[in-house]
Amino acid sequence: MKKHSFKLINTLLVVFPMTFIMAFAGTIRNYGFGKDWFLLLLKSWSIMFPIAYGAAFIIIPNARKLTEKLVSNSKKEK
């Protein structure tokens, strides 16, 4: 599998369930299992998912660079 395809699919498989879980938690916390709770969940998730998916491509590379920097600094201290 090409590296670019792997990156897209891997990010999708992380962001999809995470945003769904967060949308579920937020919907149930704010509205409970009342009337149309599932529709509210889908509306919330449909906004969260594309934002999180796009943001992941900005955040993940920066987090990786910062982690590498922190880990390499801690190795130098030992």
Rank of each mutant, 00 (worst) to 15 (best):
M1T: 15
K3C: 04
H4G: 12
H4T: 14
H4L: 15
S5L: 15
S5Q: 13
S5E: 14
S5G: 03
F6Y: 14
F6M: 05
K7L: 15
K7T: 14
I9Q: 03
T11G: 03
T11C: 07
L12C: 08
L12Y: 07
L12V: 07
L13V: 12
V14S: 00
V14T: 11
F16I: 08
F16L: 15
P17H: 04
P17R: 07
M18C: 06
M18K: 00
M18L: 15
M18Y: 15
T19L: 02
T19A: 05
T19I: 13
F20T: 03
M22Y: 11
M22G: 09
A23T: 02
A23P: 03
F24T: 10
F24I: 06
A25N: 07
G26I: 00
G26V: 00
T27D: 05
T27I: 03
I28V: 15
I28E: 02
N30L: 15
N30Q: 15
Y31L: 04
Y31K: 07
G32R: 08
F33G: 09
G34N: 11
D36W: 08
W37C: 04
W37P: 01
F38H: 07
F38D: 10
F38Q: 08
F38P: 04
L40N: 06
L41I: 09
L41K: 03
L42C: 09
L42S: 01
K43L: 04
K43R: 11
S44N: 08
S44F: 01
W45R: 03
W45E: 09
S46W: 10
M48R: 10
M48K: 03
F49Y: 06
P50I: 10
P50C: 12
I51E: 02
I51T: 00
I51K: 01
A52G: 01
A52D: 09
G54E: 09
A55W: 12
A55I: 08
A55R: 07
A56W: 03
F57E: 10
I58K: 06
I58S: 06
I59L: 11
I59N: 05
I59C: 04
I60R: 03
I60Q: 12
P61Y: 05
N62G: 02
N62D: 07
A63D: 06
A63N: 11
R64Y: 12
K65G: 05
L66K: 12
L66E: 07
T67Y: 08
T67H: 06
E68I: 05
K69D: 06
K69I: 08
L70N: 10
L70I: 14
L70A: 13
L70Q: 06
V71A: 12
V71H: 02
N73S: 14
N73L: 13
S74V: 11
S74T: 07
K75I: 14
K75Q: 10
K75E: 09
K75W: 12
K75H: 02
K76N: 09
K76P: 01
K76T: 08
E77F: 11
E77T: 02
E77K: 07
K78P: 04
K78R: 02
K78M: 11
K78E: 06
